[in-house]
Design a protein around this nucleic acid. Structure first.
Lengths: 191, 191
DNA sequence: GTCATGAGATTATCAACATCATCCTATAGA
DNA sequence: TCTATAGGATGATGTTGATAATCTCATGAC
């Protein structure tokens, strides 16, 4: 059946958005083609009209996820004075809401080890997304010189990512909050 | 065929050890029963003579991995004066060797997001292993009071874990080393 | 109004996997 | 030396998932 001209692009976007959530929520292998398509209200058959392979979908979804994350962080940062922007980012990232909703959060926190196991070509493309993400975050980072900001970014992201990763393994809400709070307090008094 | 009395226990241990490597190297789903058994020189058929389910193997393997990690860290720590033990741990964890060999390294760095997606019962058991691991590490942590040590543990592990997780995604050796070094320098001057 | 088009549905194929029933046989214990 | 036993092999089953060929029919272009 022929659809409205913009229809394909719309559906494509919807698939990517749904896949970006499912990917973060259930992992690289958890996001099966048929499930992703069902999310979008379609059957699995049409999948290859939209993507050359599942890897292609994964990559587009990662791009989408990084974009969403950067938007989220930027929104948090732009609410305050430039000097404290990084603090807002830290608080947002280390919030219980982010911790409890991997499917809408940081793709690294949700997928890093699985991404680490992908092949060279995939990693190279992930690097591009990561770089884009970093360059959007750098302006908010503490420090004078660009190298300072860069180092701050690396360290802050590492600590936040690690804290969320650990917290998410814990079955108890209070224990999760404790880990997040420790990391937050530590970071806030470190720069 | 009947084997020597200790034979079953030996084979069991071997399966667990091999699985612990494969698990960290290839992820929860990557470690297929048949592969794990082949590692141990057996076929997949006998698996259920040793384990009630795959989850049981996963859990035993995690236990093994945490034990190995704690041994590794303790060895590094015991080589130096008690005040600097935690520094030795940081250096060992953030070494390129650890980063490049997930299969023999920290199970959290290799698996955290996947573990976060397991069910309540599995998480409860993981928590027990984590707690045991923490109690072995606490004596080496910086700080006077136990709460200080506890907080230091949380923060140090978070930062190290996050740094290794990020580094492992990067395709370039030098970039990986830079991330590890940033995290190391940051931690070493933070306590 | 017609009809060619192409997005999506249906269905098939092939591979990987967990799980399990059944069979085989070397050895421990007598 | 004999034999019951249990560790391991073989092979089957059912499931899930990626990929792809083929069919269908609503709609835009005429």
């Amino acid at each position: 059946m022929r659809y409205r001209p913009q229809h394909k692009a719309e559906i494509h976007q919807k698939i990517v958005k749904d896949a970006a959530r499912r990917l973060r929520g259930e992992g690289l292998t958890g996001a099966a083609v048929s499930e992703v398509m069902r999310d979008a209200g379609l059957t699995h058959g049409g999948f290859y009209k939209h993507f050359g392979s599942k890897d292609e979908l994964v990559l587009e979804s990662l791009r989408q996820a990084f974009r969403e994350l950067a938007d989220f962080m930027a929104r948090a940062a732009e609410k305050c004075r430039p000097e404290t922007a990084w603090k807002a980012i830290v608080k947002a990232y280390l919030s219980p809401e982010h911790c409890d909703h991997a499917e809408g959060g940081c793709p690294l926190a949700a997928l890093a080890p699985e991404l680490a196991r992908t092949d060279k070509t995939m990693k190279a493309q992930i690097l591009r997304e990561l770089t884009r993400y970093k360059s959007r975050m750098l302006p908010f980072m503490p420090g004078r010189r660009p190298t300072d900001k860069e180092r701050a970014f690396t360290v802050i992201i590492s600590t936040m990512l690690g804290a969320v990763a650990i917290a998410r393994v814990l079955p108890d809400r209070a224990a999760r909050a404790r880990v997040l709070a420790s990391a937050r307090d530590f970071l806030l008094r470190s720069f």
